[in-house]
Amino acid sequence: MAERPRQIFRVEASIRTLAQRFLYLGLVGAAFALMLLGKADVLLVERVRAHVTDAVAPILDFASRPVASAKEMINEVQAMVALKSENDRLLQERARLLQWQAVARKLEAENKALKSLLNFKSGETTNFLSARVIADAGGAFAHSIVLNIGERDGVENGQAVVTGEGLVGRVAIVGSRSTRVLLVTDLNSRIPVLVESTRARAILAGNNSDQPKLIHLPPSARVPQGDRIITSGHAGVFPPGIPIGVVASVGDAGIAVQPFAKRNALEYIRVIHYGLDGVLSSPGREIPSKTGKPGIAR
């Protein structure tokens, strides 16, 4: 009599382990299917990602605040300690900048006069949106940050993201209240740039290291070490002339660029609206404009 329930129990247990094994294999298969889907339907996957990031954004916003204020406190203590030396340094810098100011004033006046002579039209006006960095993610595989503003604040795909120092990256995925920014160091980042002194055009390609590389330089181009790299404004996505970094090394491994913006120091950043749609406008936004104005390609 005692044999039967034990047998039933054993059969039940083996069925359960079998089911669990199937579930496990099914889930691994589902994960691989997700990867394929990410390759096949980029837009769908990006939308899912934007929704998930949107959902977590308030938590991230909340969690990143104490860290930021702790960092501020440490900075303040450090500033107190270095008050005297900092003051000396600033006095020297001020003297130097006053000379620069005189030069800049002279050039500005000259520039204005020449522009009026030539009837020169300056480029598009730019607007800024300020935002806070609420997530810094990716490890060795992807370099991106998340901002606490989104579509409802007017962020659009492809806009340039800058700090006072220089270009940080471009807007890659826009949710309703969060924005993912692809940093210039990410493997997928390609930015049209100019070498400032020689005006040679190139593409700045991220490679998941701290120093992205210059590629597609014209064969004759000479790139001296220490030269500044700026955005070229080609492709109509970024305003021209945003500083990105300096040439750190020139060698067989390519030309490495050290960006001005430090990833760990990113806290408040600006999103530039340049007034151009460029090549990166998201298809989701094109639909209303197409139905509204048939025949006009934006």
Partner: peptide, 24 residues
């Protein structure tokens, strides 16, 4: 296992890695 899968997908979404990598 499905909880592990969910954790992986969330990590992929937040970290910006290709969807499914951390799940696997």
């Amino acid at each position: 296992a499905y909880a592990v899968f969910a954790v992986g997908v969330l990590q992929d979404c937040l970290a910006g890695t290709a969807l499914g990598v951390n799940a696997v």
